[in-house]
């Protein structure tokens, strides 16, 4: 018979993860820094670590919420086509206004506009996905996958007509990068992620009941429709903030939630969500160290994360009984 992990076991797992995060962060910031390179390296690396924190919090929270409301442990917003939506919007900007416009979109106003556009578009997509959600989770999954494929197909189609030099600008946006971050934009993203995260945490225990499924949570007095609507907005805001800030990291969500579920086997979101956030921080910091120190930027960090996350995803496909 399996045993329920004790509070002590959870505490040790949290302590180990937090220690690992701190160790990775300190190693990343201070390794190889000399007195001559201090002024250049430290601010740059601190900025990267802050960006990793924003993305880690955002991906950790949004992936767990998404899995809870879809009652499915192998899906995340990115896998359901969110990244393709981001790519489509970027392609549309280049198609209609040219690559110059995209590379200039680094002012806070432009960033906010892009963020707002992403939030509106992704909320609309989630609404379409969850329309008829009462009937079946398969409907949600199917609509999400079809929309994701449609966005991907449309992007590819439009990319054929883009000038090759402008396409290279777009290509740079196809992979996540923590090295082109503007401090002002990082601040805005952090504020947006904090606000959305606080809204989610205000109702944390309700998600424990929602994890039992729609029927049971309604029977337990959860205003299910309101919770799903709120979740869609929170997921859209969090995912948009991190994607617009650094770019798409398709398999990070599934990687970190799977790690969190393995390390913190519980239905309690008060444990699972911080666990997923810590797992995201560890994965991103480790990926950054490998990219910078071992591979010397030869391979984008997103490729390493997506490779590890993709393997996890395939493993889960084989193990999960209820898709």
């Amino acid at each position: 018979m399996r045993r329920v992990p004790s509070s002590k076991a959870f505490f040790f797992a949290f302590a180990a993860m937090a220690f690992l995060c701190a160790a990775f962060a300190l190693f990343y910031i201070f390794s190889g820094v000399s007195a001559e390179t201090w002024d250049y390296n430290i601010p740059r690396r601190l900025k990267v670590v802050c960006a990793i924190a924003v993305v880690g919090v955002s991906v950790g929270i949004s992936s767990v919420i998404f899995q809870t409301i879809t009652a499915n442990y192998i899906l995340t917003p990115s896998i359901m086509g969110f990244d393709n939506l981001y790519l489509l919007l970027q392609t549309l900007v280049i198609y209609f206004w040219g690559g110059g416009q995209l590379s200039m979109m680094d002012s806070p106003a432009d960033f906010m506009l892009t963020l707002l556009l992403m939030i509106c578009a992704s909320t609309a997509v989630f609404f379409i996905m969850f329309k008829g959600r009462g009937e079946s989770v398969y409907h949600t999954v199917l609509v999400g996958v079809v929309l994701g494929m449609a966005f991907g197909g449309l992007s590819t189609f439009m990319q054929v007509f883009i000038d090759p030099s402008e396409f290279s600008v777009l290509e740079g946006r196809m992979f996540a990068s923590f090295n082109r971050i503007n401090v002002q934009l990082l601040g805005i993203s952090a504020a947006v992620v904090c606000a959305a995260g606080a809204w989610f945490f205000s109702d944390l225990r309700t998600y424990d009941a929602v994890a039992l499924g729609r029927e049971r949570s309604i029977s337990l007095g959860v205003n299910y429709r309101a919770v799903v609507l709120k979740s869609m907005v929170v997921v859209a805001v969090l995912t948009s903030a991190s994607t617009v800030l650094v770019g798409p990291l398709t398999f990070l969500g599934i990687l970190v939630v799977s790690l969190a579920r393995a390390l913190f086997p519980t239905y309690r979101h008060g444990i699972l969500v911080p666990g997923a956030v810590l797992a995201a921080l560890c994965a991103l910091l480790f990926g950054m160290i490998v990219t910078e120190r071992a591979l010397h930027f030869a391979v984008p960090m997103s490729v390493i994360i997506d490779f590890a996350g993709g393997l996890f995803f395939l493993l889960l496909l084989g193990r999960v009984k209820n898709l």
Partner: peptide, 14 residues
């Protein structure tokens, strides 16, 4: 009022 549906599957590990 409490209602128990036909499905006794719950996604959460409890």
């Amino acid at each position: 009022l409490a209602i128990l549906g036909q499905t006794l599957y719950t996604p959460a590990r409890l």
